[in-house]
C-alpha cells in the first residue's frame, strides 16, 4: 500500500511538472495547424536562430571535449599542488548563476571592459557577437564532460596507461589506444549532456548576445522574443524544436545506457567486480 502510494505520488509529480509542460509545448505549437507551425519554423529569423544555436554548439562542445578530457586526465592520473583547487574551479560554473557568467564576459570584453579598447582598435567583436555567445556557452557547459570523466578515470587508475608505456607505447598511442577506449562511454555521455545544455543555455547567452535578431539570437533567446511579442504559436513552435533536440539527447543517452549497462554503475565501483558480474 505504502509502495503504491509512493509510486503514484512520484508519477503524478512527474506528469504535472515534466510531461504536461512538454505536451503543452507541442500542443501550443500545433494549435493553429501544421502550416502555421512550418511557417513559424521556416521564418528567416527562426531559421537563423536554429543555425546559430547549432553553430555555437558545434564550436563549444568540441572545445569543452578537449578541455574536459585534459582536466579529467590531470585530476585523475596525476598528483600535483592545487589539484583540489582545480576540482573546485571546474564546479564553479555550476555554482555561479549564468547571468553572472554573462556579466563576467561583458566586464572583460565589453566596450568599457578590460580588453574593450584593444578589441575595438582591432575591429574584433566579442560581446554582442558570435564569439561572446560561444565563450558564455563554454563557460556554462564546462563542467559536464570533466565531471563525467573524473570518476570514470579515477576508478580505472593508472595501471592500464603504465602498462602501455612499459610495453613501449608513446604517450599518443597510449591515449588513443588505451585511455580513450576506456572512457568512451562516459565521454559520449558527457558530450551529450554538454550538447543539450549548450543548445538550451539562456541566461549567460542572453547577457552577452544583445538580442540582435537574425544575428545573435539563439533559439532560447528567439523563443523569448517571440513570446514577449505575444506571438505564442511561433514561440512554442521554436520551443518545440528545442524540446525535440532535448528529447533526442535523452533518447541517445538511454540508448547508450541500454547498450552499455555498466556505464552508470561501473563508474563508482572497482572495475573487476563489475566486470565479473558482467561476464
Amino acid at each position: 500500500m505504502g509502495r503504491l502510494l509512493l509510486i503514484v505520488t512520484a508519477l503524478l509529480f512527474l506528469c504535472v511538472f515534466l510531461v504536461l509542460p512538454l505536451l503543452v509545448v507541442f500542443a501550443q505549437a500545433l494549435a493553429k495547424g501544421f502550416e502555421v507551425y512550418y511557417l513559424a519554423i521556416l521564418a528567416p529569423m527562426a531559421w537563423a536562430a536554429v543555425k546559430l544555436t547549432l553553430l555555437v554548439a558545434a564550436i563549444a562542445v568540441p572545445l569543452n571535449l578537449i578541455f574536459g578530457v585534459a582536466a579529467a586526465w590531470a585530476i585523475a592520473k596525476f598528483n600535483f599542488r592545487g589539484k583540489s583547487a582545480l576540482i573546485t574551479l571546474i564546479d564553479l560554473p555550476f555554482a555561479v548563476s549564468p547571468v553572472i557568467a554573462g556579466m563576467i564576459f561583458i566586464l572583460v570584453f565589453g566596450t568599457h571592459g578590460w580588453f574593450g579598447g584593444y578589441l575595438r582598435a582591432h575591429h574584433i567583436r566579442v560581446v554582442f557577437a558570435v564569439p561572446g555567445i560561444v565563450l558564455a556557452t563554454m563557460f556554462v557547459t564546462f563542467p559536464f564532460i570533466a565531471r563525467e570523466l573524473i570518476p570514470v578515470m579515477q576508478s580505472q587508475g593508472k595501471d592500464d596507461e603504465e602498462t602501455a608505456l612499459s610495453l613501449g607505447a608513446t604517450g599518443w598511442q597510449t591515449f588513443w589506444r588505451v585511455t580513450l577506449p576506456n572512457i568512451r562511454w562516459g565521454l559520449l555521455y558527457g558530450v551529450l549532456l554538454c550538447n543539450a545544455r549548450a543548445m538550451g543555455e539562456f541566461g549567460a547567452v542572453s547577457v552577452v548576445a544583445g538580442h540582435i535578431r537574425g544575428v545573435t539570437n539563439t533559439m532560447p533567446l528567439h523563443v523569448e522574443i517571440l513570446y514577449n511579442e505575444y506571438n505564442y504559436t511561433a514561440a512554442f513552435a521554436v520551443a518545440s524544436l528545442l524540446a525535440l533536440l532535448a528529447l533526442l539527447t535523452l533518447a541517445g543517452k538511454s540508448i547508450l545506457e541500454w547498450r552499455q549497462p555498466e556505464l552508470r554503475h561501473a563508474v563508482r565501483r572497482p572495475r573487476d567486480r563489475t566486470r565479473r558480474a558482467y561476464s
Partner: peptide, 17 residues
C-alpha cells in the same frame, strides 16, 4: 619506461578490456 625493456604485471591485471 619504454626504453627499459621491463615487463610489468600488476595485481589488478590491467588488461586492456
Amino acid at each position: 619506461i619504454g626504453d627499459r625493456k621491463v615487463g610489468f604485471v600488476f595485481q589488478q591485471y590491467a588488461l586492456f578490456r
